[in-house]
Design a protein around this nucleic acid. Sequence first.
DNA 1: GGAATTTGACCCCC
DNA 2: GGGGGTCAAATTCC
Length: 350
Amino acid sequence: MEKLASLDRKSVISVLTQGKELANELKKQLHPTATSNEACDSLLENILSSYENALRLLNCMALLGNGGDPSQIGVSNFLGSAYSIEGSPRSEVSEHSSKDHQPHRVVSKKRKTLPRWSEQVRVCSETGSEGQLDDGYNWRKYGQKDILGANHPRAYYRCTHRKTQGCLATKQVQRADEDPSIFEVIYSGKHSCIQERLKQKKENLIIQNKEEESQRHSQQMLMLSTEPTLKVETQELDTEEGSFPYFSFPSTPIDSENVEPQLFPESTNFIGTSYTPPFLSPATSESYFSFSPCPVNDFGIVHSLQSSESDFAEIISNPTPATSFPFEDLDFLIDQVDFGSHFLDANDCL
DNA sequence: GGAATTTGACCCCC
DNA sequence: GGGGGTCAAATTCC
């Protein structure tokens, strides 16, 4: 069993390493045109950071010497939510994993054969409601059920475009017993619909990334500059703004606050150095993970990639909803940010 | 009036 | 038989 786990780990590391190398290669290829495509460069940096984080996690697991049973603390659980770690009976996915514990039986005859994965979404307690869980898709509620042993009912949603586009994506939303401000969302199936809204969000994010990148770049230039250079900059600012006595950083503190969550993907050292609150949002004590969906944006979603390893593999190979958007990796990118945040949880359990 | 939600009933699987 | 997922009629909302 240990050999199997070790093999499993090695293969994951191997795949991630290969991905990282490919991304590196892509970066090299793109580099000559980087000045005309900063957004792509930024994306690549983030992808690379994600790979590094994943590899650190896996290496960390190896160092922990947890016995190697992937069902105990394997990749899926390590990435998984507190629920899966605690083995809550409510967790559909963990339920499956326990029921399907028997080694590789014939494909389950359960209705649900679509790929499933879960997320945890925290909302502001004062305004929190399921309706505010905005993951970029449009959902229609088609059912609600009281679940045995759970304090809160489970709501069933399907994609609004089920009829018009035959999209089979569904999700289940349920409040966590332990913390009602946390929703556990279980997604089933991939979107085959085209949802303009999501695309719009991604485009906005890319534009935002690009702006932030250039802001950071100019900040770094300022900080690395020598005094005379600073003076020149100051003069330029003086001529443009006319109201700065000496020099001023181009971005305001407010801007830097907004930028902060986006900086995480680039903080490649955050896993290796510290798992402490610096990575929690300083803006609010309410924040459970890096960023909360309530004040910032709709992407304050913590992906808890759990369920079976085959599902995990499927998610890796299809990390995004099925859109035709060219920057599909962005979802993966966001996942990895959360992935890093999740490590906080995992660390808490150690 | 159409879309979305609610809710009881039904179906599937263990 | 029971629990969970889905259906579809009834109801509500815009």
